[in-house]
Write a protein that binds this DNA or RNA. Structure first.
Lengths: 189, 189
DNA sequence: TCCATTGCAGTATGGTCATACTGCAACAAA
DNA sequence: TTTGTTGCAGTATGACCATACTGCAATGGA
C-alpha cells in the first residue's frame, strides 16, 4: 500500500457525503454520477475505484443518512422533551432543507422501487430508529408498542412532511406542519 | 377539421392513461417519453402534437390520477363504512399495485421537487380530497376539522403505505399496514 | 372525386446517462 | 533516490434522454 489509508477513506467519505445530500435534494434517478463526483471535487473517472456501481453507492449512502438520523433522534429521545423532536421534524426548517433532512421523507417511494438488496439495507438501517421510537412510545402510553406501530408513527411524520413540501402556498404548508404536530402528539399519548 | 375530434381526444387519453400508470410505477424521472408512447401504442414523434412538454404531460397526468382517486374516495365516504376505505388504502393489494394506486404515496416527494406550476396543479387537484376527508373527520369527531388536519391524516396513510412498500420482508410489511390502520382509526375518532 | 387538413411515423440533434479502459503522477517503502 | 503501487483524470462507449422537424397517408368536407 503506497498511499496512506486515510487518503482513500477520506475521498470515499467525500463522495458519500455529496451523494447522500444530492440524492435527498433531487432524487436518486435525477442525479447522475458526474454531478455527485463534481460535488465531491472529483471527476467521473474516479468513481469506480471507490464503488462497484451507482446502486452500491446508493446503499452506502442510505446507511449513512439513516444512521446519522438515528443518532440525532437517539439523543433527542434520551435528552430533553421528545416533543421537541416532533416539532423539529415537522418544522419549516426541516421542510426547506431536504438535503440534510430525513431520508425517508425524501426517498421512501423511490427506494421502494429499487432492488431487494437496496430495500433490505434501507429496512435494516431504519430498524434501530423504529426500535427507539417504539420504546419511547411504550413509556409514554404505558403499554407495549410494536415496531410496526412505530413505523406507522414515523409514516405520519414523513407523509405529512412530504405533503407540506409539495404544497406551494407557504401559509397552507405551515398549517399542514402544525396539524401534523397535533396529530403526532395525539397518536403518541 | 378533417379528423373526427374523437380521434385526437382518444389518443390523448391513451397517452395520459399510460403516463399516469408508468409515472406511479417507476417514478417521473425514471420514465422516458419513448416508454410512455410505446405503452400507448405510438412512437415518440407523435408526442408533441398532443402535449407541450413532459412537464405539461405530468401536470395533466396528476390531474387525472388525483381526480380519479377523489372519485373513488367520495363514493367510499358517502357509501358504506368509511373504515373500509382506510383498510383498502392500507391493504396488501394497494401496496402491490402502485401503478393504479394513490398518486400521493407514489409521487409526493418527487412532485415536491418539480416547478411551482406543477406543485400548484397537484395542490389544487388534491384539495377536494382533503375537503371531503375533513368533512368526514368532522362528523366523526363531532368538532370542526380543518383541511390541514385532513392533510395530516392523509399523510399518515400515504407515509405508512410508503414504508410498507419499502420494507422487503412481507410479514413485516403486512404488520406495518395493520398498525397503520389502527393508528388511522385512532386518529379519526 | 378531389383536396386541404392534420394525426402520425421516422428521423435528427445535442445532451446526459452508467460504465469502462488507459495512462500519468503522487506517494511510501526500500 | 529509486521503485512499484495506486488514486485519479481523461476519454471512449453505447444507450437513452427531451425536443424538434419533415413528409406521408388517412381523412372528411366540398
Amino acid at each position: 500500500m503506497r498511499y496512506a489509508p486515510e487518503h482513500n477513506a477520506a475521498t470515499r467519505e467525500r463522495i458519500l457525503e455529496a451523494a447522500s445530500r444530492l440524492f435527498r435534494e433531487h432524487g436518486i434517478a435525477a442525479v447522475g454520477l458526474s454531478k455527485i463526483m463534481a460535488a465531491a471535487g472529483l471527476t467521473v473517472g474516479t468513481f469506480y475505484t471507490h464503488f462497484k456501481s451507482k446502486e452500491a453507492l446508493l446503499r452506502e449512502s442510505l446507511c449513512r443518512s439513516l444512521d446519522a438520523r438515528h443518532e440525532e433522534l437517539g439523543q433527542a429521545l434520551l435528552g430533553a422533551d421528545p416533543e421537541t423532536l416532533i416539532r423539529a421534524y415537522l418544522s419549516p426548517e426541516h421542510r426547506d432543507a431536504p438535503g440534510t433532512g430525513c431520508p425517508i421523507a425524501a426517498l421512501a417511494p423511490e427506494v421502494a422501487r429499487h432492488p431487494r438488496a437496496t430495500r433490505h439495507t434501507f429496512s435494516v438501517h431504519n430498524a434501530p430508529t423504529l426500535a427507539a421510537l417504539a420504546t419511547w412510545l411504550s413509556s409514554r402510553q404505558g403499554k407495549q408498542v410494536s415496531r410496526a406501530d412505530a413505523a406507522a408513527f414515523l409514516g405520519l411524520l414523513a407523509g405529512t412532511l412530504q405533503l407540506a413540501r409539495a404544497t406551494p402556498d407557504r401559509a397552507e404548508s405551515d398549517a399542514i406542519l402544525h396539524a401534523g404536530v397535533q396529530a403526532a402528539l395525539r397518536l403518541a399519548t
